[in-house]
């Protein structure tokens, strides 16, 4: 290991809050002590992490409050050091951290809120979808309908929760102050890019399960086999609802 590599490694350890002793002899000590100088960088590391997570998950930040969010960010920094010079996907493990801390507690819903907020961010980065060619779909022979494979919009993210997910999100947008009744039931949300914005729509549970199943890339016949019976029963409504939420962008029909 060359001198530069060793120095950078010692810096990284010290700035992450690990032992700073190996770095101290390498630092100039005039006027301000090296340990104080290291503290500026430790502080930066924590703040960069906190701000990146807060940028991705502002509703979670409001829900847990400033002090708790700072602690969560420190947990995150320790558990998931950044692996990229681009912070765009830095927060991807945040829902798992929240689940690990709060699953089964009265704050059980936090992980799902983070999943919704990350889905919104993801949708911003994806292309806009085309629209389903209904004329072509109408031309598919009835006996081939089971072979049809639907493709979802690239920006589509389906997020479901046993909590009123979208209602909680909405109650934390600027100007909103209402309370949310957590016992009001599950909510399933279809998130996707529309033009310059991200759109979220509530869908029902059957459409949500169907959407997740279609995401596997199987034909309608194959997807059918994966669906629970109560969803099979309402398949027409579920497929229509998913389409109305912008969930289907293309279809293909393999050669028979």
């Amino acid at each position: 290991m060359n001198a530069l590599h060793r120095l950078q490694r010692d810096c990284e350890h010290a700035f992450r809050g690990a032992d700073a002793a190996p770095l101290l002899p390498d630092l100039v000590g005039k006027a301000i002590p090296p340990a104080t100088r290291i503290e500026v960088y430790r502080n930066n590391a924590r703040e960069i992490c906190r701000k990146a997570l807060a940028n991705s998950c502002p509703v979670v930040e409001q829900l847990v409050g400033d002090a708790c969010f700072r602690s969560l960010a420190r947990e995150y920094l320790d558990a998931h050091p950044s692996t990229s010079g681009d912070l765009q996907h830095f927060g991807r493990e945040f829902p798992a951290i929240l689940d690990a801390l709060y699953s089964g507690s009265e704050y059980d819903y936090l992980g799902d809120i983070a999943r919704l907020e990350l889905a919104i961010e993801d949708a911003l980065l994806e292309p806009e979808a085309g629209t389903l060619d209904l004329d072509a779909l109408a031309d598919v022979p009835p006996d081939r309908l089971g072979d049809v494979i639907f493709t979802q919009a690239p920006s589509l993210r389906l997020v479901g929760s046993r909590y009123p997910l979208l209602s909680i999100w909405r109650a934390h947008q600027p100007g909103a102050e209402e309370s949310v009744d957590l016992s009001s039931g599950a909510e399933y949300v279809a998130v996707r890019r529309v033009g310059d914005e991200v759109e979220m729509r509530l869908i029902d549970r059957a459409a949500f399960i169907l959407g997740r199943a279609l995401n596997g890339g199987g034909s309608l016949n194959q997807v059918w086999d994966e669906l629970p019976d109560d969803v099979r029963e309402v398949l027409p409504g579920a497929l229509t609802a998913l389409s109305l939420a912008g969930g289907l962008s293309h279809f293909s029909l393999p050669e028979s």
Binding site: R9, E12, F15, I48, T83, F90
Partner: peptide
């Protein structure tokens, strides 16, 4: 360093 970023 060693694949771990401080993004600083």
């Amino acid at each position: 360093v060693d694949g771990r970023h401080l993004n600083d």
